[in-house]
């Protein structure tokens, strides 16, 4: 589904990713862990197409397309989704309108008919319940005045509505209480399907207790220095990153 080869990227002339190789197959859940500043978020945003990140080398194939040649919206339309670490506020634009606009943009790009307000409302109601939010939440301006937990739930809701083929969650679990964390984990678990893949970026293990990954990667200084199964995460928790970096 996603093949990353020797991906290097920089922000304002500072090299962040120094050669990432990663292959994600349909149905898999990958976790990327690493300390602050190791390049986790940059990897997530490079894949989503953030334009102030300069790709200096490498390639990314996504479902047979050259992902790096696509605009951010074209990537979303191709089925990529990024749950933001810091979702932005858009005053005056209701969550409902935003989600409807987003979904219809994707549908239009796929040649499907756009949903009208009523169809969309029917489509979204169950998903709102799934993330344990009040429907009134949909009328609020997107992310404006949302608590940290609400912002993250909103990201999960968007993911459920947009139904991506490949979802990246950038530290969606950080700063959440245990209930919100469950909502996130359940959201991710409910998306697990044989034809979908998920990439979770985190530096906590809590999420992994409720959502079992297939593969765990350790990112350090812009490179994946170790990959393994879920036991790698456990080992990491007990021994810290030094254990790995000393070896590296």
């Amino acid at each position: 589904m996603l093949t990353i080869q020797n991906l290097q990227s920089s922000i304002q002339g500072i090299e962040i990713l120094k050669g990432i190789d990663l292959t994600v197959k349909p149905g898999e859940v990958h976790v990327i862990m690493g300390p602050n500043g190791s390049g986790k978020s940059t990897l997530a945003q490079t894949l989503a197409g953030r334009e102030d990140i300069l790709v200096t080398n490498g390639s990314v194939q996504f479902l047979g397309q050259n992902l790096l040649a696509l605009s951010p919206e074209a990537r979303a339309q191709a089925g990529l989704f990024l749950a933001f670490q810091y979702p932005v506020e858009i005053p005056g634009v209701s969550t409902l309108l935003f989600l409807k606009t987003a979904l219809n943009s994707l549908r239009k790009a796929r040649g499907e008919p756009e949903l009208d307000a009523l169809e969309f409302l029917n489509n979204i109601q169950e998903k709102v319940r799934q993330v344990k939010m009040d429907e009134r939440f949909l009328q609020r301006s997107l992310n404006e005045g949302f608590s940290g937990g609400e912002k993250k739930r909103s990201e999960i809701l968007q993911m459920l509505v947009l139904d991506p083929k490949f979802a990246i969650l950038d530290e969606t679990d950080s700063g959440l209480d245990i209930d919100a964390l469950k909502v996130v984990a359940e959201g991710v678990n409910s998306l697990r399907k044989p034809d979908r893949a998920i990439l979770v970026v985190t530096h906590y293990l809590r999420l992994l207790e409720v959502m079992v990954p297939d593969i765990v990667h350790i990112l350090w200084d812009g490179r994946i220095i170790k990959s393994g199964d879920k036991t790698l995460a456990r080992e990491l928790e007990q021994r810290g990153y030094e254990w790995l970096t000393e070896k590296a």
Partner: peptide, 12 residues
């Protein structure tokens, strides 16, 4: 750019 990128990353 943050707001724009956010919207575009949703396909808008």
């Amino acid at each position: 750019d943050e707001q724009l990128f956010y919207c575009r990353a949703r396909g808008i």
